[in-house]
């Protein structure tokens, strides 16, 4: 082939090479851009559809929950009451002391009368009057072998010819 162009109009060889390379690079970039753009668009469309589906399912679930609103109210109430009942139950009470006192009074039977008894959640003070010493002995032996309290202190011990033997006990730490 004969080049008829004047030499001053002939393209620079280096520039032509760069131009050619850039054309290829641009083409590849356009393809990559289109693929990337379509990918992003696809993801966006799919994601939007998915979100729409989830939202419609959620609406159905919310309607179902709304229908069971009474049950929910009752459950919330029940849980609230139970939580507070637990707190009430955890508070100190003299129930254990009462059981222990009942056990002690069971040991005396009819042999003694309760001169005075007071108890709360922490301790119990008991005064008993025994008519005869043998019953008192039986009671003390039984108390020593199976006391329902951790600590039993003999506070007073007396005798009156009219009433009998007076026994004052201070007890704490019911074991029941």
């Amino acid at each position: 082939m004969i080049n008829l162009l004047p030499p001053n109009l002939t393209a620079n060889k280096g520039l032509a090479k760069i131009q050619k390379t850039m054309k290829t690079v641009t083409l590849v970039s356009v393809v990559v851009f289109i693929v990337f753009g379509l990918g992003v668009l696809g993801f966006f469309i799919l994601g939007s559809l998915q979100l729409g589906n989830i939202n419609s399912r959620q609406e159905a679930l919310k309607a179902g929950i709304k229908q069971r609103e009474t049950t929910e109210q009752r459950l919330v109430l029940l849980k609230d009451r139970i939580a507070k009942i637990k707190v009430a139950k955890s508070q100190d009470s003299s129930q254990e002391e009462l059981e222990a006192i009942d056990q002690i009074l069971g040991l005396t039977g009819e042999a003694a009368s309760v001169s005075e008894l007071s108890f709360d959640a922490t301790k119990a003070d008991l005064s008993l009057v025994f008519r005869d010493s043998s019953q008192l002995g039986v009671f003390l032996k039984a108390l020593a072998s199976a006391s329902p309290f951790e600590t039993v202190i003999l506070k007073t011990f007396g005798f009156s010819p009219t009433a009998g033997y007076l026994l004052g006990l201070s007890m704490s730490g019911a074991k029941l």
Partner: peptide, 18 residues
């Protein structure tokens, strides 16, 4: 003893007897 068995929840707090 039965006080702890009725509603409302109640507890024997203090007892004094003779």
């Amino acid at each position: 003893k039965n006080i702890s068995l009725f509603a409302p929840i109640s507890k024997v707090e203090k007892v004094r007897l003779n």
